[in-house]
Design a protein around this nucleic acid. Structure first.
Length: 1039
RNA sequence: GGGCCCAUAGCUCAGCCUGGUUAGAGCGCUUCCCUGAUAAGGAAGAGGUCGGUGGUUCAAGUCCACCUGGGCCCA
């Protein structure tokens, strides 16, 4: 075999610049397409892309989810799976409408109707397209491989038709129905909000909280002149006050209150008497149930409310806060509505859909409901019914997009009866593989257990139209396609845009009563659109071929989004799957924590702490950002992102990897190494076998971590290996690389090839660059891209755990020795005669490793401390609390004292002889002690965890001379470099030095010449000596 | 108001499940060493009442309760 020579790679690298050229390479050679095509016919591994809403520019938090969505599909592809990655865009919904309204300067629905629905929806479509471009750019730049050409768009006619089909399936089961309910409603947007939308909009606000007197007008309380004391934080609802609710089982106090000689009688829950101030005397206690139907005079009489204004009973009333008497306004509270219906009370609503009081209401007609509070509180005061008024801070729901305060409002709405499939949802959730696991039974499980019906409809414009047509007599038809609609209407409609207003224009006679059928006006929640993507992305079941495609890719093996999607996409995806196919749409879900700014705050436009993703990647490189997201901290905890944290990644991990590559190519090229020269593993050194052993253990670890979606652990293992490789294997083997040792070069090459593959899902750019510049150069027969290779397979027979442990010990001993040397203030360049070692397993440590320690510490002889003279060693002992505590419990403190009082040398000697010994009255063995052996004075010692290294600091003239020679070599090497010689250049050296070291240098001439590649090495007395330690000065010439 | 998660060095985080007496790593800082991977590598030092209070225990960063602060979710 004639394998090619390698070429050197410069150590300096411009990461972002390199990434741009890799992007070109991928595009030009269609590498992404090739990576999936190569697996066609293999077992599929299905990934669903949760479509981003294209209503704004992408932020750094979008990178986070997209990194995770990229790394596992890349890994599974390398494992031989067929992983298609279809991009998607969430096009509909209020967010898009809001953005367009802002651009057009609109303030409400009226403006849109004036402008025209068709024109408005065109603007929405255009806005979506524009923002999709920005997402595409960001996605490409970060190296997220996803197929944009096949992307699904939720506004595409075939997508809408597929959604219609699924709605009809649900409608046929009787689970899609219209109902009236009090629900949160945004008066600005003119639409009800679903519960998962509601969840996103709570804001803490300060409202006026008022305590209001409702004078009693019947029974004995009226005779006492008592007033009910009612507390509310929504004074505007007092206009439509209909009743007052009390809890049947709560005790209510009739209290006489005297403040500055003013006397009055008030009724409050006994537990909440503290709401009253002044001198309070309880006249009487009455059970709530005995107050039923007691009448009162309402505080405001601005509108007509017939046959009402008495006390009703309700079990939802609490004595947590307020007064225990709750004012009832059935149009504005779900509980109120239910209670008042029970008493046959009227539902009176003085507020128009735009959130303003009806024009004919006195005092507040035409005023926005929240704005009316001030006027109404003033009015209450002037009427003398205001008892107390104080600001109250509490969370209040706001519209998640426009931040307008929501109003709970009785309105007709279409619902999906998700409560009727609750058991099925819980069953499907139990089968789901959640990461982290706690979500399954925690947050998400709780949500399912408390499931409520899905409020599906929206009174808006830009959304999937609800495909239900209805006649005056409320006969209903649900259509599943344009074809069905065309058949009903007797028209060819296959090219109709299935959006408003075009579908609204289609009418046909009712099959039952022949009256005209019109579409209901609502569009649907856009969360339904995205939850329908498993089938709608294929246009299922109408589009030819969609049935096969859907079946091959359902359910998903993997989806991944941030934690806020528990009630969003994770829910709608599972729910629609269960409703339509009786099976959840996904098997595994990775639920990410949020990205925070460097101070731990949420990134948001209005805080101005958003990191712009493209510039972040252009500054540090996409690989660095990716590695940070994947490996720094836990994927499921919230994490802080800042420039410093990301540049650390570059320095610590990526550049160390890169430097190792560069080092390898430098020497492979210099020695003319070819892969065909690689010796068999059995013929390689212990160091080689060790790093190969570590490599195979690494492959196992990384493979397992990726398969469990644990990128953090994969990253940790990879970073540790990079450090082992660079800072121990290469460092210790440097001499062999200079000598062109083929075993070392082959070993390093093999490690780098596998390492590059293992890293490639996480950092696809730099690994591709290495593949092209190193791997492919050394062996042109390999795959055209690292991303077209198979994932490395570990060879367990090459894993040698004993060897790994021995190297680990070697490194610990070296670390101790270095510490001792640093302490001794003798330069490492100066050799020492002897070091004594104390460590478990020292006697069986291979000679190779002992030699490495000697070399690393620059010591001539190493010996076991046990072999040294007995007097050389001091023994000290400490109580081992863990073992003693288990045996003796609370006596440990006394035993520890007794041990401390015993002569340690005698104690250990005795224990070693007989296995047990008595300390005080207690029988202990060797395991109950922590024994430390250190050499006596005159030595420099470092110890840790029972291992020690002791250095003999005595210097002989021979040792000093050897040290000086080494100094000369180092000096010349440095000069070679500063003079710009190539590492393989041969040189001529002329030198001069101080008198005292002349003979030493001359006698080491051969050795020095060899080390510095000198063909000539001659003293030249005309050269002036310098003022360094040896006075040495040299002049180098290329030979 | 309720649920879940989090709080350890100036910064980013391990350790906690399974309690053990000098609490670790990386970055940053100071000093020193080494040097043909050199914008690297090594050693030492400064820096911690392990958020607070109480409890369990011979022993608590670790287990329990409460509190404070932050995040997410629910109302």
């Amino acid at each position: 075999m004639n394998s090619p020579k390698m070429r050197p790679i410069a150590a300096a690298i411009d990461l972002p610049g390199m990434e741009r050229s890799i992007l070109d390479f991928w595009r030009t050679n269609s590498i992404f397409e090739a990576s999936t095509q190569a697996r066609e016919g293999a077992q599929p591994w299905t990934f669903y892309e949760g479509p981003p809403t294209a209503n704004g520019m992408p932020g750094t938090h979008h990178i986070e989810a997209r990194v995770f969505k990229d790394v596992f599909p890349r890994y599974q592809t390398m494992k031989g799976k067929y992983v298609t990655r279809k991009a998607g865009w969430d096009c509909h919904g209020l967010p898009v409408e809001i953005a367009v309204e802002k651009e057009l300067g609109f303030t409400g629905k009226g403006d849109i109707e004036k402008y025209g629905i068709a024109a408005f929806n065109d603007k929405c479509r255009e806005s979506v397209t524009r923002h999709v471009d920005a997402f595409t750019t960001m996605t490409n730049r970060m190296g997220f491989w996803v197929d944009f050409d096949q992307a699904y768009w939720t506004m595409a006619p075939e997508y809408v038709e597929s959604v219609w089909w699924s709605l009809k399936e649900i409608w046929k089961k009787g689970l899609l129905v219209q109902d009236h309910r009090v629900a949160p409603y945004c008066p600005r947007c003119g639409t009800g909000l679903s519960d998962h939308e509601l969840a996103q909009g709570y804001e803490t606000v300060t409202d006026p909280s008022v305590y209001v007197r409702f004078p009693v007008t019947s029974g004995e309380l009226a005779d006492l002149g008592a007033a009910l004391l009612v507390w509310t934080t929504t004074p505007w609802t007092l206009v439509s006050n209909t009743a007052v609710a009390v809890h049947p089982d709560v005790d209510y106090a009739v209290a006489e209150v005297v403040v500055e000689e003013n006397r009055e009688v008030l009724v409050v829950a006994e537990a909440l008497l503290s709401a009253l101030s002044g001198e309070v005397k309880v006249l009487k206690v009455i059970k709530g149930r005995d107050l039923e139907r007691v009448t009162y005079k309402r505080p405001l009489d601005l509108i007509e409310i017939p046959d009402s204004h008495f006390i009703v009973l309700a079990t939802y009333v609490t004595t947590e806060d307020g007064t225990g008497l709750v004012h009832q306004s059935p149009a504005f509270g779900a509980d109120d509505l239910a209670v008042c219906r029970g008493y046959g009370l009227p539902v009176v609503n003085p507020i128009a859909p735009d959130g303003k009081f009806l024009a004919d209401v006195p005092l507040v007609g035409g005023v926005f409901f929240k704005e009316a509070d001030k006027t109404l509180v003033k009015e209450l005061k002037s009427r003398g019914v205001l008892y107390k008024h104080q600001p109250f801070e509490h969370p209040y729901p706001h519209c998640w997009r426009c931040h307008t305060a929501l109003i709970y409002y009785a309105q007709p709405s279409w619902y999906i009866r998700t409560t009727s499939i609750k058991d099925e949802l819980i069953r499907e959730n139990n089968k789901t593989n959640w990461h982290p696991e706690t979500i399954k039974t925690g947050r998400y499980g709780d949500w399912l257990n408390n499931n409520i019906d899905w409020a599906l409809s929206r009174n808006r414009f830009w959304g999937t139209p609800l495909p239900i047509w209805r006649c005056e007599d409320k006969h209903e038809v649900c259509v599943d396609s344009l074809a069905e609609l065309g058949a009903l209407a007797g028209q060819e409609l296959s090219n109709l845009d299935p959006h408003r207003p075009f579908v609204d224009d289609i009418t046909f006679p009712c099959a039952q009563c022949s009256k005209e059928m019109n579409r209901v006006p609502e569009v649907i929640d856009c969360w339904y659109d995205s939850g329908a993507m498993p089938f709608a992305q294929w246009g299922y079941p109408h589009k030819p071929g969609s049935v096969e495609k859907f079946k091959a890719a359902y359910p998903a093996d993997f989806i991944c989004e941030a934690i806020d999607q528990t009630r969003g996409w994770f829910y709608t995806l599972m729910t629609i799957g269960t409703l339509v196919f009786d099976q959840s749409s996904y098997k595994s879900v990775l639920c990410l924590g949020h990205i925070l700014d460097k101070d731990g705050r949420k990134m948001s436009k209005h805080l101005g702490n958003v990191l712009e993703p493209i510039s972040l990647m252009d500054q540090h490189g996409a690989d660095a950002v990716r590695w940070y997201m994947l490996a720094a901290g836990s994927p499921w905890s919230a994490r802080r992102v800042g420039h410093d944290a990301i540049s650390d990644v570059v320095r610590k991990t990526l550049l160390t990897y890169w430097n190792t590559i560069s080092f390898h190519t430098l020497y492979a090229e210099a020695s003319g190494f070819e892969l065909s020269q690689s010796p068999a593993l059995k013929d390689r050194s212990m160091m080689d076998k060790w790093i190969i052993s570590e490599l195979n253990a690494l492959i196992q670890e990384v493979d397992k971590s990726y398969s469990e979606f644990d990128s953090q652990n994969a990253g940790k293992a990879l970073a540790r290996f990079i450090d082992d490789l660079s800072n121990w294997y290469v460092r210790r083997s440097r001499r062999r690389f200079w000598d062109g040792d083929t075993a070392a070069l082959a070993t390093l090459h093999e490690c780098l090839v596998s390492l590059t593959q293992l890293l490639s899902p996480m950092v696809p750019f730099i690994t591709e660059h290495v593949w092209q510049e190193l791997v492919k150069v050394a062996d042109p027969s390999v795959a055209a891209s690292v991303h077209l290779t198979d994932f490395p397979i570990a060879d367990p027979s090459r894993i040698n755990l004993e060897l790994n442990a021995q190297v680990a010990m070697t490194r610990r001993v070296v670390e101790l020795g270095r510490s001792a040397r640093a302490e001794s203030a003798i330069k490492i360049r100066q050799p020492l005669q002897r070091a004594l070692i104390s460590a478990n397993g020292w006697s069986t440590l291979p000679t190779d490793m002992k030699e490495q320690i000697a070399d690393e510490l620059n010591v001539i002889d190493l010996a076991d401390i046990a072999d040294a003279d007995g007097d050389l060693v001091d023994i000290s002992v400490k109580a081992n609390f863990k073992s003693l505590g288990a045996k003796f419990g609370k006596e440990v403190q006394d035993i520890a004292k007794a041990i401390a009082a015993t002569d340690p040398t005698e104690l250990v000697k005795g224990l070693r002889k007989s296995g047990s010994a008595k300390v005080g009255t207690w029988e202990i063995d060797l395991a109950d002690l922590v024994v430390t052996e250190v050499p006596k004075s005159g030595w420099m010692v470092a110890s840790h965890d029972g291992e020690s290294v002791a250095l003999d600091l005595a210097l002989t003239p021979e040792l000093i001379e050897t040290g000086n020679v080494r100094e000369v070599i180092r000096f010349i090497q440095e000069r070679r470099k500063s003079d710009g010689f190539e590492i393989s250049d041969r040189i001529k050296v002329r030198w001069n030095a101080e008198q005292s070291v002349l003979s030493a240098i001359s006698s080491a001439k051969a050795h020095i010449s060899d080390e510095v590649l000198a063909l000539e090495f001659e003293r030249d007395e005309t050269i002036a000596t310098s003022d360094n330690e040896l006075g040495i000065e040299v002049v180098l010439k290329k030979a």
